[in-house]
Amino acid sequence: MNKKFILITGASGGIGKSIAWQLAKEGYSLYLHFHSNEDSIRDLLVELESFKGEYIPIRADLSKQQGVKELCEGIFSLHGIVLNSGRSHFGLISDFDEETVLESVQLGITSPFFIVQKLLPKLKANQSSAIVAVTSIWGQTGAACEVLYSMLKGGQNAFVKALSKELALSGIRVNAVAPGAVSTNMLSQFSEEELSMLSEEIPMGRIGNPEEIAEVVAFLLSDKASYITGQIIGVNGGWYM
């Protein structure tokens, strides 16, 4: 049986690792992109051994212009892309210096654009391919003190909607998963009391877990979602909807 390869950017983070585990369990082989967290990728490779697929780590700094080239040079056969790289940005708009903003835009907007552009011929070579972006609830609603992050995630959502229309006749589906509050390192700066208050704001009464995001990503990559494209799927427990 031919292997189906999926590229996951940001595979060393909490959501990225869960996506990798879910896809490996479903029989995919993976390109596992990371930048600085090599220990996390090593641990992930050990965890995935039992699934007997092919798992290829690729280091690249996607906050830099040359990062896309470094990443794409390691990609051969390809059936799907999960655009998952990102950083959290907390603070007032006046808090951010120019370098931080420019690197964030490169990581969240420019690099995903060029990754898709450069890898599109490989996706078109397959009968059915898919792209899934992991965005955020803040890209749908916006958040004070997260203006930069909201801007980037909103841009990703618009990218998904536009790209899906452009690629539909090529047989390539493009969707996004927009998580709400998820139990990852992004929430590590909050106290237990703050997390408890946050949970109370969510209609389902709890914070989500990375596995719940991963299962939706896997569904959107699969043939079960063969007639779904251009959608931003909120996975948020009913929060801010």
Rank of each mutant, 00 (worst) to 15 (best):
S77F: 12
S77D: 15
S77Y: 13
S77K: 14
L78M: 13
G80E: 09
G80A: 07
G80C: 04
I81A: 12
I81P: 14
I81D: 10
V82W: 11
V82P: 09
V82I: 15
L83S: 14
L83R: 07
N84K: 12
N84W: 14
N84I: 12
S85R: 12
S85V: 14
S85H: 12
S85P: 14
S85M: 14
S85D: 15
G86Y: 15
G86M: 14
R87I: 04
R87T: 09
S88Y: 01
S88D: 08
H89N: 02
H89R: 08
H89A: 05
F90T: 00
F90K: 00
F90P: 00
G91M: 08
G91P: 06
L92G: 05
L92E: 06
L92Y: 04
L92F: 06
I93C: 01
I93R: 00
S94H: 07
S94Q: 08
D95R: 01
F96Q: 01
F96E: 01
F96V: 04
D97C: 08
D97A: 03
D97K: 07
E98D: 12
E98N: 13
E98G: 03
E98K: 11
E98R: 08
E99H: 01
T100H: 00
T100R: 00
V101P: 12
V101H: 04
L102Y: 09
L102E: 10
L102K: 10
L102A: 13
S104W: 02
S104M: 04
V105P: 06
V105L: 13
V105Q: 01
V105C: 02
Q106L: 07
Q106T: 15
L107T: 08
L107C: 04
L107N: 10
L107A: 03
G108T: 05
I109R: 14
T110N: 09
T110A: 07
T110G: 02
S111Q: 08
